[in-house]
Nucleic acid binder design. Sequence first.
DNA 1: AAATAATACAACCGCCAGCGA
DNA 2: ATCGCTGGCGGTTGTATTATT
Length: 306
Amino acid sequence: MDALWMSPLPSSTAGEDEASAAAELRRGPWTSEEDAVLSGHVAAHGEGRWNELAVAAGLRRTGKSCRLRWLNYLRPGVRRGGFTPREQLLILDLHSRWGNRWSKIASHLPGRTDNEVKNYWRTRVQKHAKQLGCDVGSRRFHDVVRNLWMPRLVERVHADDSAAAAASQYYSASPAPAACQNVAAAPATVGNCSARAPSPDATSCVTGSSSSSSWEASPPPPAQFQTSSPPAVAAGWAATTDQCQQNGCSSSATSGGDMFDESWSELLARANHDGAESAGLPDFGLGETGDNWWSLDDIILQQPLY
DNA sequence: AAATAATACAACCGCCAGCGA
DNA sequence: ATCGCTGGCGGTTGTATTATT
């Protein structure tokens, strides 16, 4: 697989030490052996000084590459797999506030990296914009997100909370499914996997050898994403669910990680047929970009997020 | 079953800011 | 003051995987 990418570049002739050293740098996917070396070295000596670390560990990688590999993949607690509806909601909301500040957004998603958030935005969100034939920064897309996508996510989160409540009662009397047992030690405040009913997300809650250390190191999620919704929030979600149904959203949750397996054109057609104005859908038109077009504050909570 | 397209994700690159010599 | 090093960040690319024809 890595024959092309991983093989060292052709070595230089004698007397070209610097060029030779540079030529021996490896690029491309990391091997499990390299991962083990890097993890072991970080465990023994700590993070930082990545250039020195790369040399000391005997890795033919740049310090930058080592740092990236550690932060995005090897670091204990890094979570992989599809984003939960909660996380998707949070990304949409925070992006509306901060734009492409991926690192800042990721800091509010425990275990997620800026790279993952960025990839999510580019693959999922921009895909939907493309389906709509508009730009992610356009007013049209912002309106769709605000009036269709986010309410649907809220609906899904609400459903998951209900399922979690039922599951927690069930699992209190029976062993947790294997997929979630490895995160049993994670604080219950993180609502993505713990105490949830089995779901596709459950299999990808936490990877890596350690599942607890960075949960503790990560910043806590916003209060409304920690445990079951407080009554006021739940009421807001219920109201939003009604709005969502008016908009024509299906009440059935999609099976995958993405909320919109259904085509945008169908959703829009249904929403507009049902009465776009009454449902809060504006007359769509391509508009200019702007900041903070939508927000969970407006759509759900009527109170500050943070 | 094979070919092709679409998607997801890992990794690299360039730029910039902070910091110490 | 400035120079070099380091780390952080956002953008982009390349590849593996999955879905579709």
